[in-house]
């Protein structure tokens, strides 16, 4: 159905007045692969610009790095407001914004000892970027990064490490008692994912309401960004060094709690269902790819025998096929 046909349909249903002016086609539709191409290019350009700025200005102190980051973000904001319709300026603004965010993140992480505080500040930064940037892709990325910051915040709060930036990337080899003992894993999972799942569910359910209130400029990218966070966030719920293929380090010992990350697959499938409900086929595909990625993580990450893993997958497979059959029966009943 074309936009013109849809508007005519609205006229005939009496939703809009018969003499309402014709709809001015803005023509901002971009397929997902073009958005991906431009997003990836903006990302990479942002990194290059940051390194360039660092080499030219050689900021040595945290304040200098912070100022460089702020200048880059304010420049991006200026470019976005300069001409909303110029794609070139959009791309340049995205690159500068990303470069500025990296610089601010660097400034935050440089001298902070508390990993929880770092995660909280990064979350606040992404929320500010989301609120301020008048660009859909920038807001979507901000929502995605905010989701990642939230995941780290909960994880590091419940399972503190040595403190500082290393906790984001490596285990320090020392044992740190989780805040709630063994229950830290399920509590952490619930605390991490419940807000994201509820928020995205609410956004899907109440779509008509926020569209009517003119909040689509915020709600739409928030929904996409958070669904991407739900899809891939499971990867950052474990220390990256455990994603190793070395003989000596093949993951955490198997116990019931280690089944929780299998739920990452379930989360990715929830994201695909939510994306289907808003008719976003690209996001459905990405979510399904995320689910497959989590499946391969399960193969490599968890230190149990392959026989157990095979048994789990066979049981899960049989359960899913049974579920599919029951759903089909309900449909035809």
């Amino acid at each position: 159905m074309t936009v013109a046909a849809l508007v005519e349909s609205l006229r005939s249903r009496g939703v809009i007045a018969a003499d309402a002016p014709p709809f001015a086609h803005a023509g901002h539709d971009r397929p997902w692969f073009i958005a991906l191409l431009q997003g990836a290019a903006g990302w990479l350009a942002g990194l290059f610009l940051l390194v360039f700025a660092a080499m030219i200005f050689e900021p040595k102190t945290t304040t200098a790095i912070f100022v460089v980051g702020l200048v880059l973000i304010v420049s991006a904001l200026g470019l976005y407001f300069a001409d909303r319709n110029a794609v070139f300026l959009d791309q340049l603004a995205l690159a500068l914004s990303i470069a500025g965010q990296f610089a601010l993140a660097w400034a935050i992480m440089k001298d902070q000892k508390s990993a929880v505080l770092i995660a909280a500040l990064l979350l606040a930064m992404q929320c500010a970027v989301f609120a301020v940037m008048p660009n859909k892709l920038a807001r979507t990325l901000a929502a995605l990064f905010a989701s990642a910051a939230w995941i780290y915040l909960v994880r590091l709060w419940l399972r503190p490490g040595n403190g500082g930036v290393d906790d984001f990337f490596a285990e320090d080899g020392l044992h740190h008692a989780p805040l709630m003992g063994g229950a830290s894993v399920p509590v952490g999972w619930i605390a991490t994912w419940t807000p994201l799942v509820l928020a995205t569910w609410w956004l899907v359910e109440r779509e008509a309401r926020w569209m009517a209130r003119g909040a689509a400029d915020f709600a739409r990218p928030a929904l996409t960004g958070m669904l991407l966070g739900v899809t891939f966030g499971g990867i950052v719920t474990e220390p990256l060094t455990l994603f190793a293929l070395r003989d000596t380090e093949l993951g955490i010992p198997f116990n019931l709690w280690s089944l929780f990350p299998l739920l990452s697959i379930g989360l990715a499938l929830y994201a695909s269902y939510a994306a289907f409900r808003v008719r976003n086929p690209a996001l459905v595909g990405i979510a399904i790819a995320g689910a497959l990625l989590h499946l391969s993580r399960f193969y490599y990450l968890y230190g149990t025998t392959l026989m157990w893993k095979a048994a789990i997958m066979l049981v899960v497979g049989a359960a899913l096929l049974l579920g599919a059959r029951l759903l089909r029966r309900r449909e035809s009943a």
Binding site: I288, M313, L327
Partner: peptide, 30 residues
């Protein structure tokens, strides 16, 4: 917005495809 039937169809499709892939993964792991 997909209808209730469409949504059930989607879930059934996901379960079906996921089930086949899980079985395939189980066999490979085995």
């Amino acid at each position: 917005r997909p209808s209730r039937a469409d949504r059930q169809d989607f879930l059934a499709g996901c379960a079906r495809h996921g089930g086949v892939l899980s079985l395939a993964a189980g066999i490979v792991f085995f």
